[in-house]
Write a protein that binds this DNA or RNA. Structure first.
Lengths: 189, 189, 189, 189
DNA sequence: AATGAATGAGTCTTCATTCAT
DNA sequence: GATGAATGAAGACTCATTCAT
């Protein structure tokens, strides 16, 4: 019937199921049934189960990798760092299902032949918003800023309120943490 | 040789492997091999694979559940809330492998017949440190405070520095976020 | 590019792979990849996998079948029999890859819908160089003469020395055995 | 029901089927059905399909390997070499199904992680009955002597006659070839 | 308190084959 | 003369689980 887009449909259905049930728990039989094709059809489009997920990763982590690349070439100013957080939040939101999948399946995915892991990307990003001479306290603030953006994803789903308002609030808290790390106005100052 | 403690040893080895490789990916065969017993021996101590992990959960999430119970009965003051964060951090640290496991296997564990999930406990806790009339911004700060403690776990492993110093810095940032949410001294104030 | 000869190219590649890896172990995918065409293309030229190998057989066992036919019509003299051995050796050499394939895949090929099997052809040939009244000992010599020619194939690959010289030596030993069977000069005679 | 001997029964049935149909063509399902157990039961006794056959090999090629070891330590006399042929024939006969399997599945078995292959063992043995200064002709005679013993196996099945008589005749022809190679009485001498 | 032997259901994967284009 | 897309059947293998001993 529909042709040409099967590869894409496989990835969509697969990511949905992976995110919902976990990678290991989702069988190719299940994916095939959802698509109303045979398991063998999946193998026409992807060499292995791992390949399916790697394909998804490559498509969807590109924005974050591009962000990292971009950030590496920028001057190390507060403005740039704020921009990093802004862009990171955008990436998280636009690749939400993948993000959720990565977050909730870290163990299962760790061994996959995927370039950078979730953790490694986070480390990289948190490095890019710090100065080498930061105190431990300020380093924590930077990592916390990133985790706040992640918390935002969680927040979106589980706390009531206007979506856009929540997004902005999350970003504000993250930016606050960043500026505090950068010697910004702090309590009592 | 040493007997009687086999049940405990099974749980220890199992949690180690679950945390490392994921729940689904870890087979009973593997656990048995690590313990140098047969698979059948595991069934003498636990009725199912799920039972093993449920046992671990019950042993190790008790502190957090007790914290929740305690918190529910306290007056809703800032001091109590600070104490909640402090105690939560302690729980996280003392049940580190379980925490890491829960964090990295959320998807796999979701379907298990376990009382409260990781997420639910977090929601509960974050509710306990908020006021009903909080703005979205302040709610984000509270959730962020909790995520900061989680970030701390990540921080412990992946950032250099003295362990105790890091722990304290993490707590400080979390407490900061909390007091800001509570109208504490903010930028420019 | 070059077309028209595709059928032949398929057979060549297939025989090569069959000889190297075995018939069952060689998949059509593999053959297609070696030829840089799709599997479906193979089906344009051959109806089934079995068909490919049957085609090869028919092309390459013809010489032996013709030899058998020829031999059946000759007078049953020692000279004719010597000629049979000579011609058989030639056939073996000129269809070397097929011979090797047949030799090493007897089990796999047994069930194929192929006229005479390797074994049957050998039995036939050995019958043609014996007399009905031969003693068991002389029958063994005749079968041994044929096996010696086969051994020669093995010899070619695995023992050093000039190719032509080896071929002649092999033939000489085979002829010797034949003439001994035919009451030729024997030890002490 | 019957216990303890299952491992052995698996090997017996497997070798039978492997010899009859070929290694690749014989599925574990088939083996299991013949034994009236499940496929999984096979995996309790052997780690892989390859393992089943390797087990068989090790049990059954031992005699030939021991012969090779023994031969290496003997003085290089004609008598010893005759003894080698005699013992080799015995080995072939006593491990007949395995021999037939090896002979007819060389291609399939080549890639298996088995010590020496059929071919290598033959080369080794043929080396042990030759002198370094042999002419090509004499080398051929030695290899031919070995092939004659193999031919004997074929002879046993496919030529009528008393079994013991055939065996002796085969050995006699092989010994003849050996003694001719060793400058024994030849035609016209 | 633990083992040896086995099972049933399921996994991922590969294969030969088909057919509309 | 060949491809792209797909299928049904089967393959090897693994898993959680059971039970008699």
């Amino acid at each position: 019937m529909a042709r040409g887009n099967t590869r894409q449909r496989i990835q969509d259905v697969a990511l949905g199921l992976f995110a919902e049930q976990g990678y290991e728990k989702t069988s190719l039989r299940e994916i095939a049934e959802h698509l109303d094709v045979t398991k063998a059809a999946l193998y026409y489009h992807f060499k292995t189960k791992e390949d399916i997920i790697i394909g998804i990763f490559q498509d969807l982590t590109r924005p974050v990798d591009e962000l990292i690349d971009w950030a590496r070439e920028q001057p190390r100013t507060l403005e740039v760092r704020e921009e990093i957080l802004r862009r990171y939040q955008e990436s998280l939101i636009s690749a939400y299902p993948l993000f959720r999948f990565m977050q909730e399946n870290q163990a299962a995915v760790r061994e996959l032949s995927i370039g950078l892991t979730f953790k490694e990307r986070m480390l990289e990003l948190s490095g890019l918003i710090q100065e080498p001479d930061f105190t431990v306290l300020d380093r924590v603030r930077c990592v916390s800023a990133i985790f706040t953006l992640h918390a935002g994803m969680f927040f979106m789903d589980n706390v009531e309120g206007d979506s856009e308002e929540k997004r902005e609030a999350v970003l504000e808290v993250a930016l606050d943490l960043l500026s505090q790390a950068h010697g910004g106005p702090v309590a009592g100052a």
